[in-house]
Computed example of a mutant assay.
Amino acid sequence: MTRAGTFHGPTLLLSDSKQGFHKTHLTLDLSADAEEIIDVSSYLKGLRKISRLAGDDDFFVWAGFNQKLEDLGFFGRAAVSADTLWDAFQITKSALDYIQSESELVIRVYSGRCHIWYFEPFNAHEGAHDVQYTIGLLANVVCRAKNEWDPDIKIAYPNGSLTHFPAGSPIAEVRNSKQGYISFDDRLLKSGKVGTDVLRAEVLSRYLDAKFIRRDQNLADLKPLTKDVVAGLVRASFGVAPWTLANTSQALQTHARTIQLRLKAEGTPFREIVQTERHNMSKRLLLVGKGIEETAEALGFDHRQSFSEAFSGWEGISPSAFVKAHATQKAEKTGL
């Protein structure tokens, strides 16, 4: 399974305007929603269509390197927002199930260098464009890191050539190889990145790691409604920072009013989603032994008292009474 966001960057680079982008998508009959799932055969067919329209066998290398990573959806926005290059690659590795479920990213650090291999499930002919594009993306991520020395970036991919990258880029060597590979000075892993947004990166990376979007789920489960996506983001924000409609708008790259209208159509307003998720999580935390103050902080309440008042409104009893009642019920069931 693959996310439609993998088409967005290349298609955008074939268009000179937003209107042109949508027209190109219609021409190619590709999925327009970056979060929409497509099957592998459709993905490969899409790659071939884009390649023919581009008229360039090496189009996917520079498309991956030059595109805005945000166009990949949650994965791209999480990677761009990461605090350091190391964080960005951890997000990339953990999120690979999200963008390309059958592929694998291997990261090793030794002898003063970081080594990254990309393995995909297709045969050499079918997989060439996929490897080129993914290595272009990874090179894009690496080159976003701030550095004060020569990172000595070395890359390998099908039909690899240094001419695929702009003059002045920190890429020192490019080789032709069937598999995808990148290595660079490991000091770069600690470097800060352009566009850092620690809150967004943390919440989105948690969201990407949530069970319902992993490869062992049914296809239908991987195409949630807006209210399911918002609920997932709210859950991922617990313990990080309070999550707002503005945060959701930024994460989804969708106007807040549009999100509100979608949620209204689905029958669940944003505020209700937040309260429901807080309610459910508060019970889970209290029942595993978390204190009232700790639970309040994890759920984004400013004060213990405000949490206790909210909980009493949900359950009809205070947090401490809820825990005591549950302990009594448990004792009665076990006969203790």
Rank of each mutant, 00 (worst) to 15 (best):
I273K: 05
F301P: 03
R257Y: 08
E277A: 04
R304V: 00
Q250M: 10
A256C: 03
E297L: 12
Q260N: 15
H303S: 15
Q253P: 02
I259E: 01
R284V: 10
A246T: 06
E293R: 14
L252K: 06
S249H: 09
G291L: 07
F301M: 07
E266F: 08
E294Q: 15
S249I: 05
M281C: 03
Q275I: 00
F301W: 06
Q260T: 12
T276N: 09
L261V: 13
A296G: 11
A296I: 09
E293V: 13
S282W: 05
R262I: 02
S282G: 10
R271W: 01
H255A: 12
H279R: 15
G267E: 06
G289D: 06
L286W: 04
T258I: 09
L261H: 11
G300A: 02
K290N: 10
R271F: 00
A246E: 14
K283Y: 01
I273L: 09
F270E: 07
T258S: 13
T258W: 03
V288W: 05
N247H: 15
I273Q: 07
N247E: 04
F301Y: 13
T258P: 09
A246Y: 07
L263W: 02
E297Y: 01
N247Y: 08
R271N: 12
V274C: 09
M281I: 00
L287H: 00
A246W: 02
R278E: 06
N247V: 00
F270Q: 05
Q275W: 00
T254M: 12
N247D: 15
A256W: 09
R271Q: 13
N280G: 07
K264N: 14
